[in-house]
């Protein structure tokens, strides 16, 4: 059986990776993928802790997170599509019409 700490390390790594992707990548879709990574890092943690505590709460939470992450991804992709229609690019730095 995998010790909980290993899963937590994986979760932490995923979280950092996700954050790094969000902050550095220029393609909007890749950035959305970074968001998914962050959410799934939390999911991993929840599951691992749920197993550790032998309680269902964490699993329920992660189920909800999966659902909402899907919803968020759907909304996000739809918006990215819209933005692409207007800007003809997915480069986050070039989507920049609302500014001071």
């Amino acid at each position: 059986m995998v010790p909980t700490s290993h899963v937590l390390f994986l979760g932490a790594a995923l979280f950092c990776l996700g954050l790094a992707i969000i902050l550095t990548k220029k393609n909007t879709i890749v950035v959305l993928m970074g968001v998914e990574l962050m959410l799934n890092a939390a999911n991993l943690n929840f599951i691992a802790f749920a197993r550790m505590h032998e309680s269902l709460e964490g699993q329920i939470m992660s189920l909800f997170v999966i659902v909402l992450a899907a919803a968020e991804a759907a909304v996000g992709l739809a918006l990215v599509l819209r933005v692409y229609q207007y800007f003809k690019t997915a480069d986050i730095d070039r989507i920049n019409s609302v500014r001071e």
Binding site: T24, I92, R99, E100
Partner: peptide, 14 residues
């Protein structure tokens, strides 16, 4: 204080 409104979301986040 209001110049940070560069319009770049990654800058906002950082």
């Amino acid at each position: 204080l209001s110049t940070p409104r560069s319009g770049q979301i990654q800058t906002y986040l950082i």
